[in-house]
Design a protein around this nucleic acid. Structure first.
Lengths: 332, 332
DNA sequence: CTGTTAGCGCCTTCAA
DNA sequence: TTGAAGGCGCTAACAG
């Protein structure tokens, strides 16, 4: 592979001249530049990014670490991030957090191969993030309860979202409302439960326990829980599932048992994934402003890169989207 | 930022010793190693990836370039790729192809920051790919008609998929079948049309022209086309949409006009995106084996990395998934 | 077992 | 306007 040196030799100039010429520096005469460009082309010269990064100590790249690339609702988040990054002439890459502690994420967090990182991946522990963050590697954490130097946080108000969802059901007249949680160790689920609690208490309604019904945030999990609920003596009046995937699993389980939604049981989900609009009945849910979250996160990252260090945590509101699955008498 | 040299100084050993110790090389005595590790910790030493990459001339990372990170059906593709990459102790990053010619993708294709690239992004032109590919940067192209040195191809048999879809409708008794295409310049759409043609010819049915109905591969596009079709004098018996997004748009348009599916018009899509299973009636479609495609692509990449260069193009079969939208008398 | 010595390919003063 | 030299941080012989 041709290096800048090869080009310099072939063109009978010094390496530095080639370097300047390649970047269009006006200090190189036009004719020289053109000749160098031609020779570079001929030799199939390609700059070596690693060498440049090493020298300049900047990569002009930020990395987004997600649990699972291509998950349904990361799309908007990434868009929000990319739009801002592109505007700043930065590149964005996404990496999955699989491999955990010694997996791939380490590469981006700990080995200075990018200028900044945005993390939305619960399985990366706080310790790693704190260790990674530093004056020249700001880290933005999404949906995580962490305060540390060079770490900045953006969150969606999950508690308020859970509150809104539950309150919506309560106002519709439902009282016996079950909460279906995600995995035990997820903060999101925890906070949504708190919102649920708060609303239920306001109406003095009887809450289900935090982990009475646990669905792993997956459709399959929701389906299983749905089967359990359906086979109990009495049905609840409504179910608040901590995410849409589970809600959809619930709907499937109920459907198979001939339980009608919302006539027999009302359902509310969380996340507003795309399918939630297409299932029948369409699912009432809580939308998280993912694009905004990405955009805000990226903006904070660039602010940090530019030297600010007193960036306050941001919390974005969630929004209730009412559809048919929770509206009494809609689909008889 | 502490460098390996700082650690060496602080520990009173040579740089190379630190390097060995850090990587757990047995040539370093255990006690020395421990001491070095401690000091590294204390100094908050973090290796510099760029320096290592530069030296070793390998990054142990492959990059997947997609049109749009997080698009609905990249998920499985990425999984397929990642599973193989992880098994080979490689990292996977994903990058969007926005920015086109001088955008971000160039960075990964042309600047030797990764060891291999998998491209599924029509907007990157062949020329760029050919230029990028080389003995030490194999490129796997997905769904693209390109043969070149160090470029290897994996495709899904779109033509056969289009054929299967159309034939399915024909066998169900439909004859007047419209084809709704994607954008004019997409190969996928083109090939699916060819499959449509072939099946229609076999049954001597009257085809619609390649671009009579054009929907841009989006739901909105499909919706618009649906409105047009609905407002024509006579409805077709069936519609084959070149992708599910458009098919869903069509369904919405028809629904608004009171046209029942499949009673009045049968519909078949392509891609088997997740929603296709949840719309009502559920959409008959053609599944592309995305996971396999990713997995095969990654395997080829590693084969190339290991020195093979005579890798034949692979074409994966598509699979028809029959659901309600095309089954006569199902949803009256 | 540990240290010395060369670069990897590029950018950046500093001189000419 | 161009060239020479040094070094970014790390690894990999090769010596000791």
């Amino acid at each position: 592979m041709a290096t800048i040196k090869d080009v310099a030799n072939a063109a009978n100039v010094a390496v530095s001249t080639v370097s300047l010429a390649l970047r269009g520096d006006p200090r190189v005469r036009e004719s020289t530049r053109r000749r160098i460009l031609e020779i570079a082309q001929e030799l199939q010269y390609r700059p070596n990014g690693a060498a440049r990064d090493l020298k300049t100590r900047r990569t002009e790249t930020i990395c987004v670490i997600l649990h699972d690339l291509g998950g349904p609702f990361y799309s908007e988040l990434l868009l929000g991030i990319q739009d801002v990054a592109t505007a700043n002439d930065y590149n964005t890459i996404a990496s999955a957090s699989i491999g955990g502690k010694n997996g791939s994420a380490v590469r981006w967090l700990l080995e200075r191969r990018v200028d900044g990182v945005i993390v939305l991946a619960p399985e990366i522990d706080n310790e790693t993030i704190i260790r990674a963050a530093g004056p020249d590697l700001p880290v933005i954490v999404l949906d995580r309860d962490l305060v540390a130097k060079h770490v900045y946080s953006v969150r969606v108000d999950n508690e308020q979202g859970g509150y809104k969802a539950t309150r919506h059901l309560l106002e519709a007249g439902y009282r016996d409302i079950i909460f279906v949680s995600g995995p035990a160790d997820t903060l999101d689920s925890e906070l949504r439960y708190r919102g649920y609690e708060m609303a239920m208490d306001e109406f003095s309604a009887k809450k289900s326990k935090r982990f009475d019904y646990m669905g792993k945030f997956t459709e399959e999990g929701g389906y299983t829980v749905g089967k359990v609920i359906a086979s109990q003596g009495t049905l609840p009046e409504a179910v608040f599932a901590a995410n849409d995937e589970m809600a959809i699993g619930l709907m499937r389980a109920f459907g198979e048992k001939g339980i009608q939604i919302p006539r027999d049981v009302a359902i509310v989900g969380f996340d507003n994934i795309r399918i939630s609009e297409y299932v029948r009945p369409a699912l009432t849910t809580v939308r998280q402003p993912m694009y905004d979250m990405g955009s805000v996160a990226a903006q904070m990252l660039f602010a940090a890169l530019a030297g600010s260090s007193d960036l306050n945590p941001v919390t974005l509101p969630a929004e209730l989207i009412v559809r048919q699955s929770s509206v009494r008498g809609m689909y008889v």
